Amino acid sequence: MIDHAHDLASVRDATERLLTAAAKLDNASVSVPSRLPGWTRGHVMAHLARNADALVNVLEGRPMYASAEARDADIERDAPRPLDVQLADLRDSAARFQEAGAAPADWSRTVELRGGVTDSASRVPFRRWAEVELHHVDLGIGYELEDLPADFVEREIDFLTERFSGHPDVVATHLTDGMRAWGTGREASTPEVTVTGTGPELLGWLAGRRDGSGLTVRGGALPALPPL
């Protein structure tokens, strides 16, 4: 069962880790390329701030973004800002998200996200947690997939394997870290491929953060995954 209150607390903790780490940067470091193609660290910080506000919109029953073009324009506008402005915006937008999450609400209701995707309101805090954790890694400032909380790694693997489950372009795949197992890809009587690795390596591949070279594959080639 999803515990949105637990996830809101986890978002708060992850945000504090990110803010503490990012505060050690300087203005020049903000314009350095991040690990995401075409984005600087400033783009990543701007996206995180605007995503917090977008998820407030979701929780309060408004469209997540005015449009895809407006989302992209806001990130481009905010990316060049100096570090102190970026940090203040990240903190303030995070506080707005926590405030929205603390408001009395029916957490079983269905909400609409970007691109017409729907989900339970109770999963919105976890979605924000994933944004903060993975984009902290994307900043390239010393926080790696291996530093992610173990419970987050397991749940994000659950989330991503569910996302690709039944996808006709992904072969039926069995994943395991040696203790837990997941299935994803198109339906089949038996998995076509088995992928083995540590939780962080599996997550890195599923989330498009690693190329899968740290994984062991049996039964064929490492499946190609569609973009998130």
Rank of each mutant, 00 (worst) to 15 (best):
S10E: 11
A88T: 14
G208P: 00
A207N: 03
W182T: 00
H6K: 13
R62F: 12
E154F: 13
L59V: 07
E69D: 15
D147N: 14
L148P: 01
H135V: 03
V44H: 03
R12I: 07
P80Q: 06
D13S: 14
R17A: 10
D13G: 10
E99F: 08
T20E: 14
L87Y: 08
Q98I: 10
V170I: 13
R180T: 06
P223E: 01
T161V: 15
A130M: 15
E156S: 12
E16P: 03
V124Y: 03
R96A: 13
M64K: 08
P82H: 10
E187W: 10
L55T: 03
G204F: 00
A22P: 03
E99K: 15
R81T: 11
G185P: 02
V85W: 10
D89W: 10
S213N: 11
R62W: 08
D7K: 02
R155A: 13
E187D: 14
E146Q: 12
I157C: 07
T173P: 06
W205P: 00
R91E: 13
A221D: 14
P191F: 08
A68M: 05
P80D: 08
H47G: 00
D7R: 04
T118R: 14
Q86M: 12
E144M: 11
P33H: 02
A49W: 02
D177E: 11
G199N: 06
R91I: 09
H174G: 05
R123I: 10
S122T: 10
R218Q: 15
T176Q: 03
S108A: 12
A130N: 07
T176G: 04
S120F: 13
D92V: 11
P191D: 11
D78F: 07
R12S: 15
A79I: 01
I2Y: 01
F164A: 05
L206N: 00
L90I: 05
N57V: 02
R109D: 09
E76D: 15
G185H: 02
E201W: 02
I157V: 14
T173C: 13
R210A: 11
V132G: 02
L55K: 07
R50D: 11
D106F: 06
A9V: 07
P80H: 05
D119P: 06
P82F: 06
A88S: 14
N51T: 15
T196P: 00
N51S: 15
A9H: 13
N51A: 15
T40M: 05
R17I: 09
I75W: 00
E156R: 14
S213F: 06
A49L: 14
R71S: 05
Y65H: 05
G101C: 02
P227C: 02
D26E: 12
A23R: 15
D84P: 14
A54I: 06
P223N: 01
P168N: 04
G220V: 05
V32C: 07
R35N: 12
D158I: 08
S67H: 12
D74T: 10
D26T: 09
A73V: 12
L25Q: 01
R71G: 04
V153Y: 00
G185Y: 03
R163M: 13
P168A: 04
W39S: 06
T161S: 09
D147E: 04
